[in-house]
Nucleic acid binder design. Structure first.
Lengths: 377, 377
DNA sequence: ATTAGTGACTAATGCGCATTAGGCTCATCG
DNA sequence: CGATGAGCCTAATGCGCATTAGTCACTAAT
C-alpha cells in the first residue's frame, strides 16, 4: 500500500519532469489572473521528486541520509525549478543571513570624487559573490550613527559580519562589535591586541612614509609639508607620527603635518598657506589624490612650478593623477586586491576561523613628473 | 484562578522591570562562559510584560486587540530590551525583506573616478534609512550578470524591490523584473510604456542637450563634437539623437557624436583625433567630467587653448571640473536629490502605489571659464 | 434574566528551512 | 532463526514573527 503510493509518486514525477511539467514556477491564481511568479520551495521539489521535504534538505545540503540516486534526482529537480534557498528561512533556522555589512561614515558632501571606496567595494564583491554572500551597504554621517547601524543590523539579524573602514584612534567600533559578537574585519587599521576577535587587514603606512621621506631627502628636500587627511583616523595619525620620527632622526626641523578634511578646497587652501609662508617647503605630500591635484593647481597659480620649485607626492593613485601636468608621482596600491583580501578574511572568520592580522603590500611610489631635485640642492 | 495567575505575572513583571531585571539581553551559558550576546525576541518581551506573544505583536504593530495600557507597557519593555524585529522572521511571514537592491554593472576597472554613483547612493540611503530599509549592493561585469543577480535575489527572497541604473536600448531588465513581479525604479531612463509596472525617474537629457547647443550656437560655434559615453545606454542615445536633430534644424553639417567607454584614456584619445583633423571642432561636449578634464588637457597639449581655440563643456559637474585651468563649464545636477527621488518612488511602489514616471529638473549649465566665443565668429 | 456583543487576551498555525527523532527494509551475524 | 545494525526515508519540531481562530469576562440590549 505504502510502497505503491510512493512508487506512483515517483513515476508521476518522472513523467512530469520529462513530458509535460504541470509544475512550473509560474503560478496561476484561482481567478485565472496571472500571479507575478511563485518562488519554488523545497516542498515543491519534494512533491516533484516524490520524496519528503527532509530528504530534499539532506540531498541539497550534502548531508548523509539519502542515496546518491535520490540526491542526484533532487538536485536536478531543484535546478529545473530554479530553486534557491530563501535567505530568510535559512537565517531563521540559525544559518546566518548570508550577508555582510559595510558602513561608510562620511557626510554626503564629502563623498565627492573618491576612487578608493568604489574599487575597494568591487574587490570585496568579487569574493563575496563567489559564495553568494550579499553586501548590505550604508552611508551614514558619523561613527556614532555607524555604531547604531551595527546594533540595528545585529538585532535585526541582518548580517553575519561586517567590514569596518576608516579605523580611528579611540575607536568605539571594535569594542561594540566584540560585545555584539559580530565577526568583523577592520580595513586599514594597525593590528590591535585589545580586540582579539577582530581581524585586521592593513598596509604599512609607516614604512611607506619612511620610504617617501627617504626619497625626498635623497633629492635634497629638507622642508617638507604633509597635507594629511582627517585627524583621528588611525592611518592619518600613523603617517603623522612616522613623519615626525623620520624628521627627528634626520634632524629636520622644518617638516610638519597639517590635517584636513580630504577635500580639494582644503587641499588647495593649506597649500596656499604654506607656500606663502616665509620659508616655503620644497616638497608636499598629500594624503589623497584629490588634494594633491588641487594643491598642485594652487601651487601653479602662486607661481610655483612643479617640480622645479616644489615637489608633489599623492598618497593615492588614480586617473586623477594623470589628468594634470605634470603627472603626479603617487603611492600606488591595489585597492581592488585590498578589498578582496578583506573579504577573504571575513569569510574565513565566518567559517569559524580565528582572527588574524594580515598585512598587504606596502604602497609603491610611482615616480612621475611631479617630483624632482630640491631647488638649491 | 486564571485571573490570579495573570495578576501575578503582571506583578512579577512590574517588579523585575523596576528592581532587578533577571532578564538582560546578555546571556550566560550553563557552563558559565559568557555567550557573546543574545538577541531579545518577542517571547522575551512577552515574558517580561506578562502577556502572550500575540499580544506583544499586536501592541508593537499598532494592531487592535490590546488596551492602550498594555500597549504602552509592551512598548516600554521592548525598548528596554533593545528589541528589533528579526528581518528574517518578518520576511518569512510574508512581510518582505525590508531591503532593496542596487546593482552596478560596470567592469571593475571602469569604476575609476566616478562621483555620480556615490552621490546617487548616498541620496538613496537617506530615504531608505528613514524607513529602516537596507540596501543590498552588488557590482557585476555586465547586464547578463545583473539579470542573474535579480533572479537570485528574487528566488532567495532577498529584496523587495530594486533600483536599476544605466538603462539601455533593448534592455532585458525591465521585462525580467516585470516577469518576476519585482517592484523597480529605473533611474535615468525615459518613460517606457511597455512596462507599466516600473517607475521611472529621469532627467530631460534632450532638453539639456538642446539648450547646450543653443548656447554654443549663440557663441558662434558651428563645428561641435560630442564625446559621448557608452553606446547602447539609453541616455547616450537620447543625447546623440537630440544633437543630430538640433544640428539638422540649424543646417549644421559638421556636428557629430563619438561614443566612448567614459574613461579618461578614450576621452583624451578621441579629443586628439578630432582636433588633429582637417577642420577641427570649435566646441567639445563631453558626457562626463573625467573625459572632459582629460580631453581639455589633451587639447592643451596639442596647442589648442581653452576656450580661445576650443570650448569645452562637461556633462557632469564635480570637484574635478574645478581642478583644472580654466575651470570647466558643466551641466550641473543634484545627484543626491536624484537618488532621493528614486528611492522615494521605490518606497511608494513598495507601499502599493502605482508606477509613474517622474522627471527631475533639467541639468543646469554652469558657465565657467571653458566656454567662449568661437574663434572667427 | 437571557442573549448578543464587545474588548482584551491567549492559543494555534504557517512561512521555508535545518535538524532530530523515529520507522521500515534488508543484509549480517551469532 | 531471531537479534542487530546499517541504509534510506518520513514525521515532527523549532527558529521569530504575523495572523486567524478561539476564549473569557463583562456590558448593553431585549
Amino acid at each position: 500500500m505504502r510502497i505503491r503510493l510512493i512508487e506512483l509518486n515517483r513515476i508521476s514525477a518522472y513523467c512530469s519532469g520529462n513530458v509535460s511539467p504541470e509544475w512550473g514556477i509560474r503560478g496561476t491564481t484561482m481567478s485565472g489572473k496571472r500571479s507575478p511568479a511563485r518562488r519554488p520551495t523545497m516542498k515543491d521539489i519534494a512533491r516533484h521528486a516524490g520524496v519528503s521535504q527532509s530528504a530534499v534538505s539532506f540531498a541539497l545540503n550534502g548531508r548523509p541520509g539519502v542515496s546518491e540516486d535520490t540526491r542526484e534526482r533532487v538536485r536536478r529537480v531543484a535546478e529545473e525549478l530554479g530553486w534557491r534557498p530563501s535567505t530568510a528561512a535559512r537565517a531563521l533556522s540559525g544559518e546566518g543571513a548570508a550577508t555582510v555589512g559595510f558602513v561608510l561614515a562620511r557626510p554626503a558632501d564629502t563623498l565627492g570624487v573618491d576612487s578608493f571606496f568604489l574599487q575597494l567595494v568591487s574587490g570585496i564583491q568579487e569574493v563575496l559573490a563567489e559564495r553568494h554572500l550579499g553586501l548590505l551597504f550604508q552611508v551614514v554621517e558619523d561613527v556614532a550613527d555607524e555604531c547604531a547601524v551595527y546594533r540595528r543590523w545585529w538585532a535585526e539579524h541582518r548580517v553575519d559580519g561586517v567590514l569596518v573602514v576608516d579605523p580611528r584612534t579611540d575607536d568605539p567600533r571594535p569594542g561594540l562589535l566584540d560585545e555584539l559578537g559580530l565577526p568583523a574585519v577592520v580595513i586599514g587599521g594597525a593590528p590591535d591586541d585589545r580586540h582579539p576577535g577582530l581581524s585586521t587587514v592593513w598596509a604599512d603606512d609607516a614604512g611607506a612614509m619612511a620610504s617617501v621621506v627617504d626619497g625626498l631627502y635623497a633629492l635634497g628636500h629638507r622642508r617638507i609639508v604633509h597635507i594629511a587627511g582627517l585627524p583621528g583616523l588611525a592611518h592619518t595619525e600613523r603617517r603623522i607620527r612616522t613623519l615626525r620620527a623620520e624628521a627627528g632622526r634626520r634632524g629636520l626641523s622644518e617638516v610638519k603635518s597639517v590635517t584636513t578634511d580630504y577635500s580639494d578646497a582644503e587641499g588647495a587652501a593649506v597649500t596656499r598657506r604654506v607656500l606663502e609662508g616665509p620659508t616655503p617647503p620644497t616638497a608636499l605630500i598629500y594624503d589623497n589624490d584629490v588634494m594633491a591635484v588641487a594643491g598642485a593647481a594652487a601651487a601653479a597659480e602662486l607661481g610655483f612650478s612643479v617640480p622645479a620649485d616644489v615637489s608633489v607626492v599623492s598618497w593615492e593613485d588614480s586617473a586623477l593623477c594623470r589628468m594634470v601636468k605634470p603627472w603626479l608621482s603617487a603611492l600606488s596600491r591595489d585597492s581592488v586586491e585590498f578589498g578582496r583580501t578583506a573579504a577573504r578574511e571575513l569569510t574565513a572568520l565566518l567559517d569559524g576561523g580565528s582572527a588574524r592580522a594580515v598585512r598587504v603590500p606596502v604602497p609603491r611610489l610611482v615616480e612621475r613628473g611631479s617630483t624632482g631635485v630640491a631647488r638649491g640642492a
